[in-house]
Amino acid sequence: MIVIMAGGRSSRMGREKPVLRVAGVPMLLRVYGEAEKVDEIIVALSRNTPRTRELCLREGVPFMETPGKGYVEDIIYLLREFGPFVGVSADLPFVRAGDFQAIERAFDWKTSLTGVLPLRLVPRDLKPVTYGGYAIVGLNAVGTEGEEFFELSNPLLALNVNTPEELNLAERIARLVGK
Rank of each mutant, 00 (worst) to 15 (best):
P93F: 03
F100G: 03
E73D: 11
E34P: 02
L113A: 05
A97K: 02
I42Q: 00
V88E: 08
T49E: 03
A35K: 05
F100N: 06
M64K: 08
M13P: 00
N48E: 12
R53P: 00
R9F: 02
G132I: 10
Q101V: 13
M13A: 03
R58L: 15
E16G: 05
E40V: 12
G178T: 15
V31Q: 00
D39F: 09
E36D: 14
R105T: 08
I42H: 00
K17C: 11
L78Q: 03
Y131T: 13
P50Y: 08
V38P: 01
P84K: 06
V22W: 04
G87I: 01
G8M: 01
V142L: 10
T163R: 07
D125K: 06
I103E: 01
L156H: 07
P128F: 02
S46F: 06
L169R: 11
A106K: 06
L139A: 11
V86W: 07
P18S: 10
K17A: 15
I173D: 09
P93L: 04
L78G: 02
R30Q: 09
L119K: 10
T52V: 09
I136A: 09
G115I: 03
K37S: 08
N162S: 10
E65A: 06
T163F: 10
F150K: 08
N140P: 00
I41V: 15
M64A: 12
K69R: 14
K110I: 04
P123M: 12
M5R: 02
P62W: 12
I4F: 03
D39Q: 12
A23I: 02
G70V: 04
L20K: 00
G7R: 01
L113W: 06
V122M: 01
L29Y: 05
V177T: 13
T66F: 08
V161A: 08
G146Y: 09
G83I: 09
P155F: 09
Y71F: 10
P62C: 13
L117M: 11
Y32R: 10
M1V: 02
R172H: 14
A23H: 09
R9L: 08
V61G: 01
L20D: 07
L117F: 08
S46M: 08
P67E: 04
R9H: 06
G146L: 14
L28P: 02
S89C: 12
N160K: 08
N162G: 13
S153E: 15
G115M: 09
I41S: 01
G68N: 02
G178R: 14
N168T: 14
F100V: 06
R80P: 03
G8F: 01
D91R: 02
R15S: 14
G24K: 06
N48A: 04
F149E: 15
F150Q: 11
R80F: 05
F85Y: 11
L79Y: 04
L169G: 07
F150L: 14
L152Q: 09
E171F: 03
V161P: 02
R15F: 11
N48D: 04
A141Q: 00
